Simulated scan of single mutants.
Amino acid sequence: MRIILLGPPGAGKGTQSARIVERFGIPQLSTGDMLRAAVAAGTPVGLKAKALMESGALVSDEIVIGIVADRIEEADARQGFILDGFPRTVAQAVALETMLSQKGLRLDAVVEFKVDEDALVGRIAKRAAETAARGEPVRKDDTPEVFKTRLEAYRAQTAPLSAHYAGTGLLQQVDGMAPIDEVTKQLETMLAPFQAVSA
Rank of each mutant, 00 (worst) to 15 (best):
G122D: 12
E112M: 14
G66D: 04
E73F: 04
M99H: 09
T89P: 03
I67C: 00
Q79K: 15
G85Y: 01
E97M: 14
Q102T: 15
K114Q: 13
V111T: 04
G66N: 08
V110M: 05
P87T: 12
A95C: 07
P87Q: 11
A41N: 13
I65W: 01
G46Y: 02
G42N: 09
E62K: 11
I124L: 11
F113I: 10
A109D: 03
G104L: 09
G104H: 06
D76H: 12
E117A: 04
L105E: 08
A51V: 07
V45L: 15
A93L: 13
E112A: 13
D61R: 03
T98Q: 15
V115H: 06
M99Q: 11
S55N: 14
V64Q: 01
V90W: 10
K114H: 08
L107A: 01
L52G: 06
V110P: 01
R123G: 03
A69K: 02
F86I: 07
Q92Y: 07
A49C: 06
K48R: 13
A49N: 07
L120F: 03
E97P: 06
L58Y: 06
R123E: 05
T43I: 05
E112K: 10
S101F: 05
I82Q: 00
V121M: 12
K114C: 04
T98K: 15
G85D: 01
A57P: 00
P44Y: 15
V68T: 07
S101L: 09
S55W: 07
F81T: 10
I82P: 01
A109W: 02
I72V: 06
E97C: 08
A109R: 01
I82G: 03
V115Q: 03
L120A: 04
A91W: 06
L100D: 02
R88I: 10
F81W: 11
F81A: 04
E97V: 14
K48Y: 00
L107T: 00
I72L: 10
S60G: 09
V94I: 15
